[in-house]
Design a protein around this nucleic acid. Structure first.
Lengths: 211, 211
DNA sequence: GCGCGCTGAATCGCGGTTCAGTCACAACGC
DNA sequence: GCGTTGTGACTGAACCGCGATTCAGCGCGC
């Protein structure tokens, strides 16, 4: 229903035609620079190299454009995360992998980092209605990783997996936010990820011997 | 310049007259419920019990209303934090105090929690221009607490104080966010604060003996 | 020709902002 | 005391610009 029928193969036009994706990419760029509300649909159209009206052939509204953007990108992220988690056996290893992976991914996509950290919260509707779906899915995944490791005795069990999951999400978000808003020095996110993982893992170890 | 001259003492009207504060309080409530952009100035006026135009006697624009809100509330927070930090001698004690204090404060003001966590990011202008002032001040304060403790040998020195500060901010923000958006169970924030502090402190301890 | 993807100028509603009045009160002269 | 007038905080209906959305065409490929 959102997708254009079929075809759409312009033989004279080199760019692959996937206009929907072109629009999404343009939206990321524009939203990142100006924020959702300050961004004009016409700007996104221009950035994508399409007419204003074309956007409405692929998305119901400006709002739905933002929603789709998250739906799409977060779905991708969840896929990657699930795959990686499965590939790592140890609990602590998983935590480290997940933390480093997420910041590593954003390192290469500053615009996306900004959209996720900043714009996720722009549309209250988006946050309160939509986000409580995918976002919860994300938090649940993180909490599960923690809980599993706790049951295996690899991580201390005296803290709530859900709280830890939220804290990890928040820490990642906060680091990405300040990075995206600041000078975004190269390698900054990756380095931060390693350090965050270091602190988290030591903090989550089963209580050593003495409290 | 923003304040009305003087007088303004209505003897027949019980409410203390501080209209500016009344408007700010109303704004917190409305922004929290609907988000900055979805909130109508007329709604804030109604909630504050003043006319639409009155708001413009105290604030230049809707934008400036939001800005003033942060300026005001964050200034208060910084004051409280500084005082508390000075009152606690040990580094780890300070970290715990700061973490627990912030979540404790928000526990009593759900609306404010929501405004800070959600709306702080609504106005990109606010974030990029204004926030880089007070917000930086906040991060610097946190980083200083960490750095001091590191120099005193109370916390591990192999992580960047700034990264830790950002991570702590993010973790607090993330926890407050999910709390404010969720069921906001009573005591939830306080409990989360304790656990977060537990994990952080263990994680930040000087490396035990074996890495 | 025809269908379809696309275009982009025009529309239309919304809501931030303005500003001409209103009103309560204080100051003043008597 | 008491009318008169000045002051300025406050009001709220109307204005006006903006920008999301629409839709009457357009032209390319078949």
């Amino acid at each position: 229903m959102t997708e254009p029928r079929f075809s759409a193969r312009r033989r004279d036009d080199a760019r692959a035609g996937d206009k929907r994706e072109r629009i999404l990419r343009a939206a990321v760029k524009v939203f990142a620079r100006k924020g959702f509300y300050a961004s004009r649909v016409s700007e996104i159209a221009k950035a994508a190299g399409v007419a204003d009206g074309t956007i409405y052939l692929y998305f119901k509204s400006k709002d739905e454009l933002l929603t789709s953007l998250f739906e799409d990108r977060i779905t991708r992220l969840l896929e990657v995360l699930r795959r990686e988690i499965d590939a790592v056996p140890s609990g602590p290893g998983r935590v480290r992998r997940v933390v480093e992976l997420q910041l590593g991914l954003l390192e290469g996509e500053r615009d996306l980092a900004e959209v996720i950290t900043v714009n996720l919260r722009q549309s209250t509707r988006l946050l309160k209605q939509y986000a409580t779906k995918r976002f919860t899915e994300y938090l649940d995944l993180m909490a599960l990783v923690i809980a599993d490791a706790q049951h295996a005795g690899e991580l201390r069990a005296d803290v709530s997996p859900r709280i830890v999951a939220r804290a990890i999400f928040g820490a990642l978000d906060g680091i990405a936010l300040t990075w995206a808003l600041g000078n975004a020095e190269p390698g900054g996110l990756t380095r931060a990820g390693t350090q965050l993982a270091d602190v988290l893992l030591q903090g989550l170890l089963p209580r050593p011997t003495a409290a």
